[in-house]
């Protein structure tokens, strides 16, 4: 078995685990993390399959790098949204509380 295939298989398992987690978990933050696990798995597959027997193919590498950049950006964006949503919820809760709605520190 080629090393590349090992990576690819690991990646597939990671992706599967991540997907499973995404399906059963409800909290958006956990879902976001699950998606990151899937992403990691996919990059492993990409890298692993692109690894030729003799030389390393530049294409998958370029793709993985780009993909990771995109994934990071999206994760940051998602995390920011989750925080914003939590803040908004807190503000709403505070506004409806009897003590007049002071922001929670």
């Amino acid at each position: 078995m080629v090393t590349g295939h090992v990576y690819a298989l690991t990646g597939a398992i990671l992706a599967g685990l991540g997907l499973f987690a995404f399906i059963i978990l409800r909290h958006p933050l956990r879902q976001l993390l699950a998606i990151n696990v899937v992403g990691a798995g996919i990059f492993l597959i990409l890298g692993g399959l692109g690894r030729g027997p003799d030389a390393t193919d530049p294409l998958p590498q370029a793709l993985v790098i780009t993909g990771i950049v995109v994934a990071v950006a999206l994760t940051a964006f998602g995390a920011a949204m989750i925080v914003r949503l939590a803040e908004a919820r807190a503000a709403t809760n505070a506004a409806t509380r009897p003590d007049g709605g002071k922001p929670v520190p």
Binding site: A15, I35, V38, I42, I45, P60, L74, G78
Partner: peptide
């Protein structure tokens, strides 16, 4: 929307990975 879209992106990306490998 974001979560569901991410799932879609990853599925697409996985497909691309398979094609690159193939």
């Amino acid at each position: 929307y974001f979560m569901i879209a991410l799932v879609g992106s990853l599925a697409y990306l996985l497909g691309v990975a398979l094609l690159v490998g193939r």
